[in-house]
Every structure is written in C-alpha cells, then in structure tokens.
C-alpha cells in the first residue's frame, strides 16, 4: 500500500511479556516505534502503546440506526402511502408486525457497515498485499519495528540487546 519504500529495522521477541517490557523501555528512551506486530491479540499492548479505544462500535451504531430507519420507514411508506392493504383486519400501520424485519435489517446494516469500516480503516481487503517483515510474525514471533530514516541505529541496537530481542534485522519495504 505504501508509495515509497522505507527501510525498517526490527527486532523479534519470543514472548509477549518480553515484548511489553520492551515497549515500556522504548517509551522510557523516547524511541519512535513504527509499529508492533504480533501473531495474536496481546492484551496490555493498547496500554503501553497508548492506543485509543477503537471507534468501530460508533460505526456499528450509525449503520444500525440507518438499517432501523430504512426498514421501518420503508414498510411504513409501503403500507400507509404507496399501497395500503388490510391484512387480517389490522390497521395499515401495524407496528408490531414491522418489528422482526426492522430488527433484522438493523443487525444486517450494522454488521456489514462495521465489517466494511474495519477493512477500510485497516487498509485491508481483497487484492491488498501488504509487505510482510518476517514470515514468523504470524507464527510465534513478536516484532517491534522502527523506521531507520531518522533514527540512531546504534541506540536501537542497544535497545534490542537490552530488552532481549532474539533477532534483529533490517528490511526495505
């Protein structure tokens, strides 16, 4: 996805607890972490990396509301304006009978909207190929990556050595 190539210096850890301690250390040394990659969601990362809470649930609410009003509004329009029909002697605007479809479309819109939002904000999707720093990141390695462009390589090396990174590599992506 990135337009420019950049050189990345990264270290691989063998355990998520080492990773968290390393990030704390990086924060203490004011190192500018590019990104952290893990094979599974590591709880506690959001705290040390100061990640804000995801706002996806807001998207879910907005899309769900859209589904709610679409379904309820459409059925209301059909049965009171466009083509009113009496079913079983009930009023045209028979609200209880609209509940099931309104509920289903609320859920449908919220789910599709959230999933599409998720892939869009993450820059993921069919046909997307993102550079992979190391094939073992999706297996059992925990990775901290720095951009080399404006970093002090010796300081980074010292940092990785101090925090117990198993391996360090440089890669241009």
């Amino acid at each position: 996805m990135s337009q420019h190539t950049k050189e990345v210096f990264y270290g691989l850890y063998n355990d998520e607890e080492d990773l968290i301690h390393a990030i704390e250390e990086a924060n203490a040394q004011h190192l500018d972490i590019m990104d952290v990659y893990t094979p599974f969601p590591v709880h506690g990362l959001e705290k040390v990396m100061h990640l804000e809470e995801s706002r996806l649930h807001i998207a879910g609410f907005v899309f769900g509301s859209l589904g709610f009003f679409t379904a309820f509004g459409f059925m209301t329009w059909v049965f009171t304006r466009d083509w009113p029909i009496i079913f079983g002697g009930k009023p045209y605007w028979s609200v209880p009978a609209f509940i099931p479809i309104t509920f289903e479309l609320t859920v449908l819109f919220a789910a599709i909207g959230m999933v599409v939002s998720f892939y869009t904000v993450c820059g993921l999707g069919p046909g997307v190929t993102n550079p992979v720093l190391d094939d073992r990141i999706t297996d059992d390695k925990f990775c901290i990556a720095f951009e080399t462009a404006n970093a002090d390589l010796n300081a980074l090396k010292a940092f990785f050595a101090k925090t117990g990174a198993g391996e360090v590599h440089t890669k241009t992506i």
């Binding site: 990104d35 969601p41 990396m49 649930h57 789910a111 959230m114 999933v115 999707g125 190929t129 990775c143």
Partner: peptide, 20 residues
C-alpha cells in the same frame, strides 16, 4: 486480505469481534 498482525489492527479486530 493483506493481514500483517499490526497491533492496531488486532485491537480493531477484537473490537469488531466483540460487537459482532
């Protein structure tokens, strides 16, 4: 889909799973 395992992606992934 070009998954990398980025920490932010995992965080959103978990949020999405929970709401779904």
């Amino acid at each position: 889909f070009g998954w990398t395992g980025s920490a932010k992606h995992w965080q959103r992934w978990e949020a999405l799973s929970l709401v779904l």
